[in-house]
């Protein structure tokens, strides 16, 4: 976390899903490699960062953890702004949390960027004996909706890292592709505005390495 560290990209990722599915635990496992036995309900929003290397670039994941309860939706919708990725979490031992996934998806799609990379996560595989959501059901749903899907255990540190790295790498690839396309667009000297609208990522989302570009 030294302040002099070079950051090539900042990706904002949001964690959503019903209350008590383990969103905060997934985040604390990823950001600090911890599992807290006395976790409290998240009120409003909480925020963590972790920097990872992807293809020799340093990517700072800025992860927003939001309250699960419906009441907080109005306030949290602002948090979707600028998000490039989302972790959509349910609890494999609580069928209802999986059945609410379509609602969450709808909310994501209405508030967030269309190119949002979404990973659906079935958490708490350490409670296999209490499983109420077969993995096949979830896989099928994920395929139909075009989502990434993994089952995790924040408690046992299973697949959490993989889930985030998958999302971050996918975002990274999309950005690289966009930049390449933008470059080739420039080379072909077709300065079409529509092209730019699609191809150039907003400065609030991707911060180039060069210092002085932002906020000084």
């Amino acid at each position: 976390m030294a302040s002099g560290d070079r950051i090539d990209y900042v990706f904002k990722v949001v964690l959503i899903g019903d209350s008590a599915v383990g969103k905060s635990q997934i985040l604390s496992r990823f950001a600090r490699d911890e599992f807290s036995l006395d976790s409290k309900a998240t009120i409003g929003v909480e925020f963590q960062t972790r920097t990872v290397l992807i293809e020799h670039k340093s990517v700072k994941a800025q992860i927003w953890d939001t309250a699960g309860q419906e009441r907080y939706r109005a306030v949290t919708s602002a948090y979707y702004r600028g998000a490039l990725g989302a972790m959509l979490v349910y609890d494999i031992t609580k069928r209802q949390t999986f059945e609410h996934i379509p609602r969450w998806l709808e909310e994501l799609r209405s508030h967030a960027d269309k190119n949002l990379v979404i990973m659906m996560i079935g958490n708490k595989t350490d409670l296999e004996d209490d499983r109420a959501v077969p993995m096949e059901d979830a896989k099928e749903f994920a395929q139909k909706e075009g989502l990434f899907f993994l089952e995790t255990s924040a408690l046992q540190a299973v697949n959490v890292e993989m889930a985030f790295l998958t999302v971050l790498t996918e975002i990274f690839n999309i950005i690289i592709k966009k930049n390449l396309a933008a470059d080739s667009n420039a080379n072909n000297s077709v300065p079409s505005l529509e092209g730019k609208k699609i191809l150039i990522p907003g400065p609030a989302q991707i911060i180039p390495a060069k210092k002085g570009m932002c906020c000084t």
Partner: peptide, 13 residues
């Protein structure tokens, strides 16, 4: 159910 979840999470320490 929501209340139960949160009562369990009240000052767990």
């Amino acid at each position: 159910e929501q209340i139960d979840r949160d009562v369990k999470r009240t000052h767990p320490d």
